[in-house]
Structures are given as C-alpha cells and as structure tokens.
Design a protein around this nucleic acid. Structure first.
Lengths: 152, 152
DNA sequence: CGGTATCCCGTGTGATACTG
DNA sequence: CAGTATCACACGGGATACCG
C-alpha cells in the first residue's frame, strides 16, 4: 500500500477510523463474538464474558444505539416474557472483521499443537480463508494494493 | 454459523478473543492504520492521531512488546540519528482486519455521496473486496459457515 | 526534534444493592 | 431471572515538565 497525501489521510474521512470508533473498545467485539456463536440472553453474555452486569447492561444499550444489536422480546408458553439480544444486519456484517481476527489469531497467537477454533464450509467441512478478489473474480496479491479517494 | 458446546466456546481457547486482547483498545488499530498508510515517525503519528505524546509513547512501546511494530534507527547524512516505527510481519498481517473494517465502514458508516477511501488493485485500478474461499478456490457463502475445534 | 516521567483527572469497571 | 442504579476505585488519557 502506498502513501497518499495528508489531506486524504484525514482520519475524519477514513472508514477504518469510523469503524474503530464504533467497535474499537474492550467489549464490543467480545460481545459480537458471543452473538455470532449464538448467544442471546443477558445472563449468558455475562457468564461467557466474565463481565459485571452493570457494564454489560450499558454496553448492550450502546450496541443497540449503534445498531449492532436489537432487543427482541419473546415468550415461551408457561414462562414469563423475556428479551434477547440479536445481531442486526449491520452487526452481522461484521462477520468479516471477526473472521479476519480469527485468522490472525490462529496464525500468530495460537501455539502449534494447541486446540483452537476454525471456520469450515458447512457440508464440505472444508476450511475457508479470506481472500481479496477484484471485480473479475480474480484473486489479488495482498501487496498489490493502492488506496483511492472515491465517493460512495 | 451454528452454536457449539459451552466448553468449546471457552474464550481462553478462542483466537478471536486472543486477538481482541491485543488489538481491541482505543489506539492500536488507529496506529496500525497510520502505519499501513506509510507513517513511521513519532511526530507524524502524534499529529495524525491527535494523541498526547505520553500516551503515544506508551502505546508504541506496548505495540513493540506485542511484536506489531519494531523500532528501526536510521541516519540521514548531515542530520542526527532518528528512530522510526515500522510494521513487523505480524503487524502487516493485520491488513485483513483493516480491510474488513474499511469495507464495513464504507458499507455502514459512510453516507451515499460522501468522499471515502477505497482499496484498488495496483495496475488495473479495479476495486477489490474480501471474499471467502475454500481450499479448492471456490467462493463460499457467508451464511454457510460452521465452527470446528481443531489443532493448529 | 524525539521522546519519557510525573501528575491529575475523567471514564470505564466491578461490587453491591435494588426493582420488576 | 433480567436487568438498572449507585458507589468506590483503577486505569487510560492529557498536560506539563524534563531529558538526550
């Protein structure tokens, strides 16, 4: 990746900076990881994450405000009404970030021989990896990238 | 992605959790983003990030300890010796996380019509996107994923 | 210029108590 | 069980002074 001029490097323009401002704290990605694994209930989040209830409460609220999660009330007949916390589409789309972190963690933080989690394709059970494709579907080298200022 | 049993969900086993513990704070990804854009000098990091010198100093030290950056001393003839902070291979490998964040930010945090940063293939200038490939090089659907406990 | 050490302060965090 | 409110505290953060 090459340098671009300082005005274009402006962090207020950069989607990476904006994303970090939403997910770049101690808890958001951990909560999301639980959500991706199917966690929905307050107490399950609390137990799995080992976080205090007050912090979790505020964090879930914040993640609802930023539209990563939504609260859905449900009722099992004979039991009382409960709420669960589910991924929004916007939250679900962070799957790529989670998978990129998983790949990096497996590559650099897991010792050889240690047990770890990997992602496989359902059905074939083949392992999958993140790759860069251009519009023609052709794979691109990680070192052949340029930045470009564009409009959405 | 489906649920797996609680023992396997253990956050101590999970590469995502381990990764978050390394990069999941306010500054690491911001510093890395500057590095990917070619930033190397202490003062440039400080100016671009708008962070205090003391915080930046401690953060760079920590990122050197975790092997994301290394310090390289260099000397321009006639000037005094200086240090610069460069990405290690381990740090560079976080490019996928950065790109995933960039894609997500462009998708969900940038208004239509706004200027933003995109990644293109050098040469063709074609935009590139992250995609999931299995071992045969075939693209996989984001919704057809399973988790598997494995050894590295 | 290129940092580090010290101090002070605000926010994030956990423990506890409390409510429906 | 499913949270929220309150409080005390540690830690991250900026300002400043200082050093090479």
């Amino acid at each position: 990746m090459t340098e671009i001029n300082p005005e274009e490097m402006n962090r207020d323009l950069c989607p990476v900076m904006k994303t970090v401002s939403v997910i770049g704290d101690k808890w958001v990605m951990r909560v999301l990881r639980e959500s991706f694994l199917g966690c929905k209930k307050f107490d399950d989040f609390q137990e799995n994450l080992g976080v205090s209830k007050s912090v979790l409460s505020r964090k879930l609220q914040r993640m609802i405000e930023t539209d990563l999660l939504y609260r859905k009330s449900y009722k099992i007949p004979g039991e009382r009404r409960r709420d669960e916390y589910r991924l929004t589409g916007k939250g679900w789309d962070l799957i790529k970030v989670v998978l990129a972190m998983m790949e990096w963690g497996n590559e650099h933080l897991i010792e050889s021989g240690d047990r770890t989690l990997k992602v496989v394709e359902r059905g074939s059970e083949l392992p999958v990896r993140l790759s860069l494709l251009n519009e023609t579907g052709k794979a691109t080298d990680w070192y052949s990238l340029n930045l470009k200022v564009d409009q959405k």
